[in-house]
Amino acid sequence: MLWELFFTFLKVGSVSFGGGYAVIPMIQYEIESHGWMTSSELQEMISLAGMTPGPIATNSATLVGYKTAGLAGALVTTLGMILPSLIAVILLASMFFRFNNSKWFRSVFYGFRPIITGLIIYAALNFGFLSGDETGFTWMTFVTLLICFGCLYAMFKYKLYPIVVLLAAGAAGIILY
């Protein structure tokens, strides 16, 4: 069990280009195919990972491990997620690659970045509206949309810090739901 957790997150960590949010669909896919969590548990987990400080990818890894196999599980998933970073960075740094000037490299990223963008949008849609338990347009859905747009507006217009937005959203949740 611990090995399986470790190798799963080692795999996720190795292909997690483009930062934490693009990793969410990967983690979700793995959890579903292993049957480690139900979809509502997964939703809760991502909310918790997003509200805690630090990278959302490692936070999610910690939570999945903890939920599935306790403290030892949390340790192995977090390690699995971090290890590829450590190895890749040491390789890159010790070889002193000057990637940015290579045309080949730039072509790869030309096609790769839009893919990451697509994955992040999918993560938002899927996490937000597609895998919920309720069906149809309810008061819940409306309030979720309202708070979500409120947060976006606050971050764009007033450049509020994420922690302020999170606290305000929590308070709004208590009042509105």
Binding site: Y21, T117, C148, V165
Partner: peptide, 22 residues
């Protein structure tokens, strides 16, 4: 539970923000 639902909405907003930036 209600607070977490609110935070859920905020996390969606944060992910959308990351998508926009990317």
């Amino acid at each position: 539970e209600a607070a977490l639902r609110g935070i859920h909405a905020a996390v969606i907003a944060m992910i959308l923000m990351a998508a926009y930036r990317m």
